[in-house]
Computed example of a mutant assay.
Amino acid sequence: MAAGGFCKLLNGTVVVALNLPSPVGGGAGGVRVLVHARNRARALTRLRNLGLRAVYLRGNAAPPTPDEVTAVLHHPDGLVWRTAPDGGAPVLELWRPIRALLGTPAHQP
């Protein structure tokens, strides 16, 4: 993992941001994943339950920006992704639900 970080919100929950290699492989580059959860451990557990087993948060080198926090808080799943920024270039891509990255169905029983 290249970078990651978190921020604690006023209500006690956290937003965790992680830069991960693309799960689709190939030359697709990396992705930036945002997770809103009760605490850091639960955020990482949510990702591991989706099949991203080797996800760890070491340090706070790349915490979520205020815009990223807003994006994940306004998403009903509290779990979004987009292509990771490449060398400081601005990203003009919209945030997407995690099921679009992993190919999981929209509604699971």
Rank of each mutant, 00 (worst) to 15 (best):
V31D: 05
A89S: 14
P90I: 10
P97S: 02
P66C: 03
V35F: 01
A84L: 09
A2K: 11
L101V: 03
A61R: 15
V72P: 04
V35G: 03
A17D: 01
P63A: 05
T65M: 01
R32K: 13
P90M: 10
G87R: 15
H36L: 11
G27V: 00
V80Y: 01
G30S: 13
E68P: 00
R48T: 11
L20E: 07
A106Y: 04
R53L: 14
M1I: 13
G12K: 12
T65V: 01
P105E: 07
V31F: 05
G27N: 12
L47N: 08
H36F: 04
R42F: 09
G25N: 12
D86C: 11
G87H: 11
A89W: 06
V91F: 02
V24P: 00
N19E: 12
A28R: 15
E93S: 09
W95T: 08
C7G: 10
P66I: 04
G4V: 07
L52C: 10
V14S: 06
A17K: 14
H107A: 13
N39P: 02
W95N: 01
V33R: 08
D77S: 15
V24Q: 15
W95P: 02
V16M: 06
K8T: 15
T45P: 01
G4T: 12
V33Q: 02
L52M: 14
V55H: 09
C7P: 00
V16F: 03
T65L: 09
P90L: 14
E93M: 10
A28V: 00
G5C: 08
V14I: 08
T65A: 09
G4R: 13
S22I: 01
T13Q: 11
A2F: 06
V24A: 15
S22Q: 10
N39W: 02
V69N: 02
V55P: 09
N60Y: 08
G4W: 06
G25W: 00
R99G: 03
D77H: 10
V55R: 12
L92Q: 09
T70G: 08
T104K: 06
I98D: 02
A61C: 14
K8P: 00
L102I: 05
A43S: 04
A89I: 01
L52A: 12
T83A: 09
T104P: 00
L34Q: 07
V35D: 00
G26N: 13
G78K: 13
A2E: 14
R82A: 01
E93L: 06
P85F: 11
G51K: 04
